[in-house]
Amino acid sequence: MLKYFTSRILEAIPVFFIIVTAVFFMVRFVPGGPFDKERAVSEETLAALNSYYGLDEPLVVQYCSFLKNLARGDLGPSFKYAGWSVNEILREKALVSLELGGCALAIALVLGLGVGFAAAAFPSGKIGAALSGISLVGICLPAFVLGPVLILIFCLRLNCFNAMGWSDFPSDIVLPAFTLALFYAAWIARLSRSRAVEEKSRGYVRTAVAKGCGKGRVYFVHILRNAVEPVISYIGPAAAGLLSGSFVVETIFQIPGLGRFFISSALDNDYTMIMGCVMLYSVFIIAFNLLSDFLLAAVNPKIAKEMRK
């Protein structure tokens, strides 16, 4: 098992470098540069800026110095936010996004598994149909609709939360975390419901009933342990998406998170910031997929056995 995960981590290193290299060259081939403004900058200023940031050197030289700095953990200065290094921005903003994303992930898991497994418990009844319907709505409802609706209801009508802002009150996290979580919760609900319904007709369920297990025991002990598998596979990439921040939710609720930088850095051609965001996201994706595989192995011994081979 340890061997399997060591080899998976070793495999991840070249993957990471391929992503980094591809993105490095791709952003530089995009027309325009970080200092193209609507107001024209004079030739001399542009030349000075380019030479200050090392952008006048050949691409290969730039790439080598990027790798050299990366090895030291230095992602370089942001081109857009003068005086800020990418490291500083990532550190400060990522913490906010991690907090928000972590809460959203917890909500998504609790809500999703709860609704999904409750719906599967009554697959043909009205409750099951209602719960499945709700989760379908959850998937279809985009954050830019849900967010303002929640603000309208809970802030303007009921006055329970602040409409926007971050870190003024602990309750500020509630609405954005819920807005972010709903889509994921709905997916988890659908995944867990369909798998649990499928598992209910398996032979081992009949065995459990035949040996005298009560309904609750059959469902919670025998079926659910088998039904969480698709959810675990899903939360790997989902966690990476949630924890790296969301452009829409952070914009609606005015949250100083990382999500906005994913979009703005690309629009601004902020080369170093793009690299920072991409690297953070790929590390998340690789790490969380590994973690979800590890969880899968912990839940299902058959998968663990295949990994040991």
């Binding site: 032979g203 081992y204 009949r206 065995t207 035949a210 005298g212 342990r225 088998n226 299902n300």
Partner: peptide, 19 residues
């Protein structure tokens, strides 16, 4: 169930819980 009347089923591979 199980105590007075116990069962053996046709497909042993699916009748046991895999986890």
């Amino acid at each position: 169930r199980g105590r007075k009347i116990a069962y053996i089923f046709q497909e042993p591979s699916t009748s046991l819980n895999p986890v």
